[in-house]
C-alpha cells in the first residue's frame, strides 16, 4: 500500500508541480491503483464471509452484516460526492481523474460489499429495493465506463477538427447559398427547398438523437424530390441539388456529433436520479432497521 500512495505524497507545490509527460486515462490511473484496492476489498469480503461463522446464518443484521452495511452506506455517500467535487474548483491539489478512477473501481466493489451484506436474503421489501437500486446505479455506471472508453475516438474522428459551432455555421452557410440558388426554381421545386431551409437541425426528438436516424429529414426529402423533378431549368436545379448534397453531408456530421455526445451523456440522466432514489431507499432501509431493532 505504501508504494501505491507514493505518487500522492509527491504533492504539487508552486515551483515543482506534478507533471505528466504522457496521457494516462482514468482507468489506468497510477498503474490501476484503485482497481487493485477495490479488488482486494472484494476479495477480503468474499474470503472473510466464508471464514467467519455467523449464527444462525449470514444476514444483514449480524455484526458482520452491520460492518459491511456501514462500509457500503459510507461508500455510497462518498461516491455521490464526486458530483460536488467535479464542480467545486478549489485551488488546492486534487485530480478529478484520480477521483473518477476511485469512483469507478470502488463503485464496482459495491457489488460485492452490498450483495454480501444482504447475506443473499432478498425479498419484496424496502431493503431489497435499496439493493436493486444500487445495482441499477452500478449498471448504468458500467455503461458510462464503456462509452467513455470507446466513444471519444469516434467523436474525434467525426468532428475532424471542426467545432460544433462551425458545424452549425457550415449548415447556415449552405442555407444562405441555397436561398439564393433556389430563386430561379419553379414553385413546385422551391417548396421542398424551403422546407429544408426551415428545418431545425436539432429537431427530431430523443429517439432520433440517440439513433442518428432522421426519417423525416426535410433536406433528404428535398434532395430526392429535386433529383426526380423535371420542372425547372436543369442548370439551376443541378446547382441546388449539389448544395443540398453538401448540406446533407454537413447535417450528417452534426447529427453524428450530437448522437455520440448524447450517448456519452444519456446515462447520467439515469445514473444520477437513481443515485438519489438509492439514497432515499437507503435511508428508509436504515431507519426501518433501527426502528424494528
Amino acid at each position: 500500500m505504501a508504494s501505491i500512495f507514493r505518487r500522492r505524497r509527491n504533492r504539487a507545490t508552486q515551483t515543482e508541480r506534478v507533471r505528466e509527460r504522457q496521457h494516462e486515462g482514468f482507468l489506468r490511473y497510477a498503474g490501476f491503483r484503485w482497481a487493485k484496492i477495490s479488488g482486494a476489498l472484494g476479495l477480503i469480503v468474499i474470503v472473510s464471509y466464508a471464514l467467519i461463522d455467523v449464527t444462525p446464518r449470514h444476514n444483514g443484521g449480524s455484526w458482520y452484516g452491520y460492518t459491511l452495511g456501514t462500509i457500503g452506506a459510507l461508500l455510497i455517500l462518498w461516491l455521490t460526492a464526486l458530483g460536488y467535487r467535479k464542480r467545486k474548483m478549489t485551488s488546492d491539489y486534487w485530480s478529478l481523474k484520480a477521483w473518477t478512477s476511485a469512483h469507478v473501481y470502488l463503485g464496482l466493489s459495491l457489488i460485492v460489499i452490498g450483495t454480501w451484506h444482504t447475506g443473499f436474503q432478498l425479498g419484496w421489501n424496502v431493503h431489497t429495493l435499496a439493493w436493486a437500486l444500487m445495482m441499477l446505479v452500478i449498471l448504468s455506471g458500467l455503461y458510462g465506463v464503456v462509452v467513455y472508453a470507446t466513444l471519444p475516438q469516434a467523436l474525434s474522428n467525426n468532428r475532424d477538427q471542426m467545432t460544433q459551432m462551425q458545424m452549425l455555421e457550415a449548415i447556415r452557410a449552405f442555407d444562405r447559398q441555397l436561398h439564393s440558388a433556389a430563386q430561379p426554381l419553379s414553385p413546385a421545386d422551391t417548396a421542398p427547398v424551403l422546407a429544408s431551409l426551415d428545418e431545425n437541425p436539432f429537431a427530431g426528438g430523443i429517439g432520433a438523437r440517440l439513433s442518428g436516424r432522421y426519417p423525416r429529414c426535410a433536406t433528404a426529402a428535398a434532395l430526392s424530390a429535386l433529383a426526380a423533378s423535371h420542372g425547372s431549368a436543369p442548370e439551376a436545379r443541378e446547382k441546388v441539388v449539389g448544395l443540398l448534397r453538401q448540406k446533407q453531408a454537413a447535417l450528417a456530421r452534426l447529427r453524428a456529433h450530437l448522437r455520440i455526445r448524447a450517448l456519452l451523456e444519456i446515462w447520467l440522466y439515469v445514473h444520477v436520479p437513481l443515485t438519489f432514489a438509492l439514497i432515499a431507499a437507503l435511508s428508509a432501509h436504515i431507519i426501518s432497521v433501527f426502528f424494528y431493532w
Partner: peptide, 29 residues
C-alpha cells in the same frame, strides 16, 4: 498562485488533458 496547479488539468475527469513542454512530450519514452 493556485497551489494545485493548472485547473484545466486537475478538473479533467478522464485524464485527457495534460500540460507539457514539447521536449517533455516528445521524449524518447
Amino acid at each position: 498562485g493556485l497551489a494545485g496547479g493548472p485547473a484545466c488539468v486537475r478538473a479533467c475527469p478522464t485524464g485527457a488533458a495534460i500540460r507539457v513542454s514539447p521536449e517533455e512530450f516528445l521524449s524518447i519514452a
